[in-house]
Design a protein around this nucleic acid. Structure first.
Length: 112
DNA sequence: CCACTGACGAGTG
DNA sequence: GCACTCGCCAGTG
């Protein structure tokens, strides 16, 4: 692999990180960006997910914002409920207000 | 090239 | 908790 295919769109980089999120865990946009080596580009993470699609091989539902809330894609509020449903199905509990306890479900590398 | 938009984050009052 | 501002970058007209 001499040619590492060169800069595979930043998107692929985010997808690779998101795929590592274990089931029953969630990660924030900023976290994904940092792990991808693009600290500070949280916005691009959301942009990449938006361009992805529901039939993707990426567990996009495990990505939420730093407030522990589910961001809205487009088309009003119905979209967030779908994501919540998927997360609950993985064993993630939601607090009143549609919020997730990041202190309890945020994905973190062993040790920190 | 410029302006605007967009699954965000952190800081300030 | 809420409203506002700034930063960061890609896509579109």
């Amino acid at each position: 692999m001499t040619g590492d295919a060169k800069a595979p769109s930043s998107y692929q980089r985010f997808y690779a990180v998101i795929r590592k999120i274990p089931r029953g865990r969630v990660a924030t946009y900023g976290q994904i960006a940092t792990l991808a080596g693009l600290d500070g580009q949280a916005r691009q993470v959301g942009y990449a997910l938006a361009a992805l699609g529901r039939s993707s091989a990426v567990p996009w539902q495990r990505v939420i914002n730093a407030q522990g809330r589910i961001s809205m894609r487009s088309s009003g509020p119905g979209g967030s409920i779908v994501q919540q449903r998927l997360l609950e199905r993985e064993g993630i509990e939601f607090q009143p207000g549609g919020r997730v306890a990041l202190t309890r479900y945020q994905w973190r590398k062993r040790g920190s």
